[in-house]
């Protein structure tokens, strides 16, 4: 299974080589860490997922000595690796550029949001195709930016405020609960994807 994760990194090396430095630059320009962190993580993970979605790739991977469970597992574990890479870049970037540590709550927040997204996106994509998901996401993002720009200029601030409030909540129980829920969701999503993929005909 480790080979499969390594394969994803080999395949995505150009994406990583481009996106991670861009992320660095973005940090330099003082953009929102949380937004770009989430966006970049999702972009890399879904790009990696889409690369393996052609039926010819299913043929290849399933003919190699891997089980379907391993193929799905590698995507879920691989997603964690990609999130870690993005978070690491943010962390080091901040340390180098701004000489400050990123609060761990922020990193955790990014990871959680991405994990929730993946938990919904992977089973959906195994069942249908990630293309539809990508199209839907792009449309949503564009709509979101238009709405923010044209109609609710303070939506961003409002969300930022809400996030700030959430992050400033100093309740370990709340954090613990949230982390637990996310992990549970991720695990359920994994089980669901294994079920879907083992019955998939390509």
């Amino acid at each position: 299974m480790l080979h499969l994760i390594r394969k994803d990194i080999v395949l995505q090396k150009y994406t990583l080589l481009i996106l991670l430095p861009v992320l660095f630059i973005d940090l330099f320009l003082d953009g929102s860490r949380i937004y770009v962190g989430i966006l970049f993580s999702i972009a890399i993970i879904m790009q990696s997922f889409a690369t393996d979605e052609k039926s010819s790739v299913h043929f290849l991977l399933n003919s190699l000595p891997y089980t379907r469970k391993e193929i799905v597992s590698s995507k879920y574990v691989g997603a964690c690796v990609f999130i870690s890479l993005v978070l690491l870049t943010i962390f080091i970037g901040n340390l180098v550029i701004h000489k400050e540590f990123v609060p761990w709550e922020q990193l955790l927040f990014i990871a959680s949001i991405v994990a929730v997204f993946i938990s919904l996106a992977f089973p959906f994509s195994y069942l249908f195709k990630s293309q539809y998901l990508m199209i839907a996401s792009i449309v949503l993002f564009v709509l979101y930016f238009i709405i923010v720009a044209k109609f609710i200029p303070d939506l961003n601030d409002w969300i930022r405020g809400a996030v700030q409030t959430l992050l400033s909540l100093d309740d370990t129980l709340l954090y613990g609960g949230a982390i637990f829920s996310v992990i549970l969701l991720y695990f359920c999503s994994y089980m669901l994807s294994v079920r879907i993929y083992s019955r998939k005909v390509f």
Binding site: L11, T51, S56, V57, F59, L60, S63, L64, P65, Y66, T67
Partner: peptide
């Protein structure tokens, strides 16, 4: 499953290798 696939070499009529 894995033991069996270790012992098989396969060629399909269309290309299954990553192209990029």
């Amino acid at each position: 499953e894995k033991e069996i696939k270790q012992r098989i070499g396969f060629v399909f009529d269309n290309n299954v290798l990553y192209e990029n």
